[in-house]
Design a protein around this nucleic acid. Structure first.
Length: 287
DNA sequence: CGAATAATAT
DNA sequence: AATATTATTC
């Protein structure tokens, strides 16, 4: 008998146990999130953060105790953490290509938080990377992930919009930014992203207000993701901190950087997984 | 920076 | 083989 086909069908059994992570538990900590949002600093004070040559120096000045190092290798230069290994000077590794990054739920969460705190308008790869403050994470890593994240948001938004159109019932859950929640309330919606978290912000920067207002009008316009060609008032974040600038993103990393933040590159392995390995992380569930 | 596209992994 | 994830190119 031909039972060769049968064996191939069995794989889907195991694909059911990765639906949710423990985000929901750690999610409701607005308190942790808020403080960063109110980085309202005096102009003269701002200059203190303008350390041109060594950005890491600026960062360290703001992170007293938390050593944002990756778990695992403590004595090693993080360089040899990937693959084949050999001893390379701390300066050389840029030429060597690092193994593919694995976006663990934890790392993703940190990413989303960073985006949320920055506000949509300011959430660009470089800044996000800086805020995340994860050593070894490159701008390209973030850029790539951000691209996908935006695509995901767009999807969710469209679903919500479509649902609203199909169902005229005044949904109370309608969201200022994202519109009504998708009908099939995804159990594992990664994070109610940026917009919702922004509600906690006591103060929005002009750019965010601009968007907020625009969306409040029900104007479908550019939507959640695009950014106006030019900001209303504030210049888009530039390297130099100017005297007139009232609001700026967090000068350094996230204050709470988990020392045990779980992230890895392709080759690495982690012991705390109790056997059940991450088969396939679905950070961006498809509808 | 960001979209498109290539490269890898599952 | 197809699809999802990450990297690289433009």
């Amino acid at each position: 008998m031909r039972q060769q086909i049968a064996e191939e069908e069995e794989e889907e059994e195991e694909a059911k146990c990765f639906a949710r992570w423990d985000w929901e538990e750690q999610l409701p900590s607005p308190h942790e999130l808020v403080p960063l949002s109110q980085c309202l600093i005096a102009p003269d004070l701002a200059i203190a953060f303008d350390i041109p040559s060594s950005s890491s120096a600026a960062a360290s000045s703001f992170t007293p105790s938390a050593d944002h190092r990756l778990p695992g290798r403590q004595d090693e230069t993080d360089l040899d953490a990937f693959g084949g290994g050999g001893e390379e000077d701390p300066e050389q590794p840029r030429t060597l290509k690092r193994p593919r990054l694995v976006w663990t739920p934890q790392l993703h969460k940190r990413f989303v938080d960073a985006v949320a705190h920055l506000g949509i308008a300011n959430a660009v790869p470089k800044t996000i990377m800086q805020i995340m403050g994860v050593e070894g994470l490159t701008r390209e890593n973030v850029a790539s992930h951000l691209q996908k994240y935006r695509l995901y948001l767009k999807r969710v938004q469209m679903q919500g919009l479509a649902a609203a159109a199909a169902n005229p019932s005044p949904s109370p859950a309608t969201h200022p930014f994202l519109g009504p929640a998708a009908p099939t309330a995804d159990p594992c919606l990664p994070y109610m992203p940026v917009a919702m978290l922004q509600q906690h912000h006591e103060k929005m920067d002009p750019m965010q207000q601009y968007y907020y207002h625009q969306n409040q009008l029900g104007h479908f316009g550019p939507g959640l993701l695009s950014r106006p060609a030019q900001a209303p008032h504030v210049a888009r974040q530039t390297e130099g901190i100017r005297p007139g600038m009232v609001f700026m993103p967090a000068p350094a990393h996230f204050p709470p950087l988990p020392n045990d933040l779980d992230w890895r590159r392709k080759g690495e392995d982690d012991a705390d997984n109790g056997g059940s390995r991450n088969k396939e992380l679905t950070l961006f569930p498809t509808g």
